[in-house]
Write a protein that binds this DNA or RNA. Structure first.
Lengths: 210, 210, 210, 210
DNA sequence: TATGAATGAGCCTTCATTCAT
DNA sequence: TATGAATGAAGGCTCATTCAT
């Protein structure tokens, strides 16, 4: 990558980081492109060199941030496994990962509001029209979550009917239910809901195992 | 209800009907309040007599329309059952109802986009801060979906662990997965996805039966 | 005064009291007629039965309140004189009265802002298009300030060239200078300004004495 | 000053000139920002690049115009003095200048209404948050009125107790009394009032001379 | 007399977007 | 590439005023 391209990427990253801060702190609609460029320290016109509009940068951020969050969950899983203390079956591992996700968003309501129910977009990151993005704060390249799960299953010596579908279904289920549960305690508070959620996850995972 | 109050309800219904038409035909952001009042044939100020802003009328509509859709599904279920031709167990009935919902939104993409993943809001309709609303097009009063399912289970002589939770979970699962499946064919087209969805529904329902 | 007229006056007084509260607490432009009628507990239309617009009620209030303030100053003067302790010449008396006015407005900035530099309007109250008004809080009928001063001069056995003109000039001088002095400390703070003001008052009064 | 900055100042001056015309011809409240920008031939948004709201441009204009008027009065004084015909003492000079001011506003009632009683704001122009402004119509740079008077006194070999305070007091007295006198003939018509005013000016000036 | 729902013109302001520099 | 002044359509919203009840 040449100096010019590198510089370009830096500007873009800067814009995305700034936009993310503003989106999560004051909301999407309350954040104007003026706000973003002012805080980012670039001119208005510069924004349009990198993004066509606010929706584009929003979508790019949702993909990037959910992808990053999945990555973090994988890392946490790896740490847990290398501890060697616990014995986890495949369903336990799914539950662990999802628990990590739920914990994270329940501690950062603004992040949850920004992501809405679109946690699964992180799965499709890397595919069509994804903006290259790697925030300064993040410390590792983002890998493919489906691939990670694949390796996990391999290690467990377990085969699953449609791994990608299972992952998608679980993520949608989790992000969708938890959105209402966390934000509105509807139909019940999170800690009351969690056991049911885990039971459902185990059910779906075990059913998918061939 | 006095003449004045009747008139007020009519104005509100008129506004909501008009807003719904515009939201589903040209999208939420592309619809201005000016558009709504112009088409509804009332003054701008009148809108603010009934709603505080666009978000409020949107939310009221999401609740009302999803509630109505659930009602329609119940009616379809009743018709099917009164046919007497088919023998359906409890899981079959859930699958039938959900199939009705999915069919409906898959045939009206704009409706799906408007509702986003919030089909379950129809469950909470009738509860807190719900605007009274009954569109001219609709032909029956809206009853409580949870209550309907309750009676259904009674008729089947079946007891379920947490009926409200099951219904919520299923609705979230369905509306969330189908949103991506229908709009983006992600991770697969709808007809390919449906068998998996049905299998999952059956799994969850049977697991909930005591 | 018949019951009907009495009632009418009560409504009007109620509206003016309410308007005054709002004008002084949130400012003239920030106060809408809706605010006034809502707080006063009457319907929108009722306002227009008593006043043509906001300017009319504002002007009526400025006249009434400045008139009342002048009255209060007279009462204070009377109390001071009946004490018998002090010996005051005519200029002293003017200074005493004006000091009362300045003290009052300097302790109620919002009142000062509302009255602006129009303290002398209280002189013309009772004349053309003045709304009859007597707030609940006030305890005495409002008399004519010029007449009061006339009696005061008589008691002092002093004749003045043009009493009404002197009073007008002094009031304008005081309200105008003190407005800037109190609100902006321009060209100097109030306590620094007061000696100069008093010197000027004495100068003008003595010059007017025949 | 670069081309861009020059252009900016021109735009601002243009806006202020236009606003002044409208404010004085149709009044402050009857003039909308739409009116101003339309007449000025710029876009609505451009207004907000230079002023935060209508009050800001109004205040800037009051300061600028009163400052300009004081300047004009100084120029007239200079012309009068260079004529050499008259012999004027210090009080005469003050009376001359004030007479110029009163004459001016009495011939332009709309200007008087716009300025209200705030003629003294011209004294503080040049100080804090004053918008740079120099109308096309005006032909000379605006100097400091207090400084002008200072030189005048020097030439007269006269020392005054608190020159700035005297000037402030005189200006407030004049603008405040003449506002009511000219607009409402209250308490008497202008020509009847003028001798009294002049007497008062002379009194105050001579008293201030050390 | 009193009401308050309805009006609708017009308010101020925002903001995505452009383009000359 | 980058800038940021200028744009102006469109936004949400207010509010004085009316009038049928």
């Amino acid at each position: 990558m040449g100096r010019v391209e590198e510089n370009k990427l830096l500007k873009q990253t800067n814009l995305m980081d700034t936009a993310f801060q503003l989106f999560t702190s004051q909301g999407l609609t309350k954040t104007s492109i003026s706000d973003i460029v002012e805080r980012a320290g670039v001119a208005k016109g510069t924004f349009y060199l990198y993004f066509n509009d606010k929706v584009e940068i929003r979508d790019a951020l949702v993909r990037a941030k959910s992808s990053q969050l999945l990555q973090d969950a994988c890392n946490a899983m790896d740490r847990e496994l290398s501890d060697g203390s616990a014995t986890m079956d495949t369903a336990d591992k799914f539950i662990f990962i999802i628990d990590y996700l739920v914990d994270y968003v329940s501690k950062d309501i603004n992040f949850l509001k920004f992501m809405s129910k679109h946690l699964s977009w992180g799965l499709f990151a890397g595919s069509h029209h994804t903006v290259q993005y790697h925030s300064d704060e993040d410390n590792a390249p983002v890998i493919d979550f489906v691939a990670y799960v694949g390796k996990m299953l391999e290690a467990d010596n377990v085969k699953i009917r449609e791994p990608r579908l299972l992952i998608f279904t679980l993520l949608e289920l989790v992000s969708s239910t938890c959105y209402d549960v966390i934000l509105y305690s509807e139909p019940m508070p999170l800690d009351e809901f969690k056991p049911h959620l885990n039971r459902t996850i185990r059910l779906l995972v075990n059913d998918a195992i061939l």
